[in-house]
Simulated scan of single mutants.
Amino acid sequence: MDLTAPIESHSVEETIKTGYEFGKKLKPGDVVCLEGDLGAGKTHFIKGVASYFGIDPESVSSPTYTLIHEYSGELPVYHFDCYRLKSEQEALEIGAEEYFYGEGVCLVEWPGIIDSLIPDEAIWIKISHLSDSKRTISIHQKQQG
């Protein structure tokens, strides 16, 4: 699977599989920022990444109300959802920077809210709705303006 070109997904299962393939490229300390509208498939993509590291994808859910879920696998996976944050200060209070520069893999939904805290080398993924079941997944190194 070529992860440098935009990927078209036609189902939840394909989005999860794309996340799994992407997970193969991750290493300790990687920060991945996921952008997309509500319901675009960010959490399904994260289920795929988590499954690559031996984490049951059924245990992965959006941490909207807790801000972060920690999963233990071959590497620790930290799943952030910044949607409800009101400021970067709130992210600092939960220790976001310690996670970003730690030994696990950080997956951040709604990263724009904590933009200045995101490491420069973060990987950015944009998931766009094309139709009810069809998505485009674009992976790039820098945030596109």
Rank of each mutant, 00 (worst) to 15 (best):
Asp2Lys: 05
Asp2Gln: 07
Asp2Ser: 04
Leu3Gly: 13
Thr4Ser: 10
Thr4Pro: 00
Pro6Trp: 07
Pro6Lys: 09
Pro6Asp: 02
Glu8Gln: 15
His10Trp: 11
Val12His: 02
Val12Thr: 11
Glu13Met: 11
Ile16Arg: 05
Ile16Ser: 04
Ile16Pro: 00
Ile16Asp: 01
Thr18Phe: 13
Thr18Gln: 05
Thr18Leu: 11
Gly19Cys: 14
Gly19Thr: 13
Phe22Pro: 08
Gly23Lys: 01
Leu26Thr: 02
Asp30Arg: 04
Val31Cys: 10
Val31Ile: 06
Val32Lys: 03
Cys33Asp: 06
Cys33Ile: 05
Leu34Trp: 08
Leu34Ile: 15
Gly36Met: 05
Leu38Ile: 14
Leu38Ala: 09
Gly39Pro: 13
Ala40Thr: 05
Ala40Gly: 09
Gly41Ser: 04
Lys42Val: 11
Lys42Glu: 04
Thr43Phe: 08
His44Trp: 05
His44Ala: 15
His44Ser: 15
Ile46Trp: 00
Gly48Thr: 12
Ala50Gly: 10
Tyr52Met: 01
Tyr52Gly: 01
Gly54Tyr: 00
Gly54Ser: 05
Gly54Met: 05
Gly54Leu: 07
Asp56Val: 11
Asp56His: 04
Pro57Ile: 06
Pro57Met: 06
Pro57Cys: 05
Glu58Gln: 01
Ser59Trp: 00
Ser62Cys: 11
Ser62Lys: 11
Pro63Asn: 14
Thr64Leu: 11
Thr64Tyr: 06
Tyr65His: 10
Thr66Arg: 04
Thr66Ala: 14
Glu70Phe: 11
Tyr71Cys: 12
Tyr71Glu: 12
Ser72Met: 14
Ser72Tyr: 14
Ser72Lys: 14
Glu74Arg: 07
Leu75Arg: 03
Pro76Asn: 15
Pro76Lys: 14
Pro76Thr: 13
Val77Pro: 08
Tyr78Met: 03
His79Cys: 10
Phe80Leu: 09
Tyr83His: 10
Arg84Gly: 04
Lys86Ile: 09
Ser87Gly: 10
Glu88Tyr: 01
Gln89Trp: 08
Glu90Cys: 13
Glu90His: 05
Leu92Lys: 13
Leu92Pro: 00
Glu93Met: 08
Glu93Arg: 04
Glu93Asp: 15
Ile94Lys: 00
Gly95Ala: 08
Gly95Tyr: 08
Gly95Cys: 09
Glu97Leu: 14
Glu97Pro: 02
Glu98Ala: 13
Glu98His: 13
Glu98Tyr: 09
Phe100Pro: 00
Phe100Arg: 04
Tyr101Ser: 12
Tyr101Lys: 04
Glu103Pro: 02
Cys106Glu: 01
Leu107Gly: 12
Leu107Ala: 12
Val108Lys: 07
Glu109Ala: 14
Trp110Pro: 03
Gly112Cys: 05
Ile113Met: 10
Ile113Ser: 05
Ile113Glu: 09
Ile113Val: 15
Ile114Gly: 06
Ser116Pro: 00
Ile118Asn: 03
Pro119Tyr: 04
Pro119Arg: 07
Glu121Ser: 03
Glu121Ala: 08
Ala122Trp: 04
Ala122His: 01
Ile123Pro: 02
Ile123Gln: 05
Ile125Thr: 02
Ile127Thr: 03
Ser128Met: 08
Ser128Ala: 11
His129Ile: 15
His129Pro: 12
Leu130Tyr: 03
Leu130Gly: 09
Leu130Trp: 07
Asp132Cys: 09
Asp132Lys: 09
Asp132Gly: 06
Lys134Cys: 13
Thr136Arg: 13
Thr136Trp: 01
Thr136Met: 07
Ile137Cys: 02
Ile137Pro: 03
Gln141Asn: 10
Gln144Ala: 08
Gln144Leu: 12
Gly145Ile: 12
Gly145Leu: 06
